[in-house]
Simulated scan of single mutants.
Amino acid sequence: MGLYDRDYGRGGMRSPWDRVENPRSMTITLIIINVAVFFADMIFSDRETGFSLASWLAVSSESLTQPWKIWQVLTYGFVHDDQNIRHILFNMFGLFIFGRIVEQRIGAAEFLRFYLCAIIVGGFAAAISGLAFGDAPTIGASGAVVAVTILFACYFPNTEILLMFVLPVKAWVLAVLYVGFDLFGALGLAGDSNTAFQVHLSGAAFGLLYFFRGWNLGFLADGLGGMNQMSDKIRSRSRRMKLKLHDPDRKLAQEAREADRILDKIHRNGEDSLTAAERRTLERYSARQRKKRQQAE
């Protein structure tokens, strides 16, 4: 039984306070952003004048040689070829399949940090490759999606994946095939291809290092301490309001606060971060809530 199949993971309509405490999937949010940029590129690009949103946001060697364009090492990862719908479809499908599970494992905030760092690593790889061998602008989320896929395979190596929707293979086998194909392409053995193999390989390397080195990118949020404190105050105010309305009894209020804290921990760090005592607290709180609903009926 999955985390969100349990009683304390269910809910009805989401109030504004619920959205603060239990934000929607970061994976879905990233997909929405990518799709929005894709359609914005289609709408605002002008083939006659040569203006293209994609070319403006793409990464290239100029992103390094012209430092005022350094932001392109990030923005390229949210742009896709508007003349080839398969480009965004394949990337977003991979992100949807593997991203949600990895996000549940490491938490939404850490997943966002991992994803953005994978894009940046791939962006620098593309820019440096352009300096060394000559380049064309690079766009697409594939490097970050490969990083997510590799991390999924590291966490769940024996999970079966349907390759080409037909052939069942272990996740670790899929990861090996990904890396092998990209190595093959990077060596120029794949013929003429517009695929940025070096970006894929940098994403795969980042995913492997993240897993085997046991990295946690939470330190990147230190500069946002003020925003985090504000978020904590909002969550605290939300809990006090809920307790005042629904839990006048002090013992129940303490239990509800503890349940909220544990759920917040799950959203930050994943269910695997819970201790045995915290799991028992959630189960006890869940049973109490079920009993209250049954009595009300």
Rank of each mutant, 00 (worst) to 15 (best):
M227T: 09
Q295V: 13
L74H: 08
G270I: 07
E103K: 11
I70T: 13
L183K: 03
L95Y: 10
I128A: 04
F98G: 10
T65P: 05
M13I: 14
D222A: 11
G107T: 11
T149R: 00
E297T: 13
E21W: 01
I28Q: 01
F219H: 12
S52V: 11
M164Y: 07
K292T: 13
A127M: 03
A132Y: 06
G226F: 14
G140V: 04
F111C: 13
N216H: 15
K69Y: 14
A190N: 10
F51G: 10
A58F: 04
A136E: 01
I139D: 01
C154K: 01
F93E: 04
G214N: 12
F219C: 09
I97L: 15
A144Q: 00
L189H: 05
G143Q: 02
H246K: 13
K251I: 13
N158F: 04
G214F: 11
V176C: 04
G191D: 02
F124N: 00
L174T: 01
I88Q: 10
Q104L: 08
F39S: 00
E21L: 06
D135I: 05
A108M: 10
Y285T: 04
G107R: 13
F212E: 01
F165V: 12
I88S: 14
T49M: 04
F152E: 00
A153V: 00
N216C: 09
I32N: 02
L245Y: 06
I119A: 03
H87T: 09
N194S: 14
L201P: 05
W172Q: 00
L189Y: 11
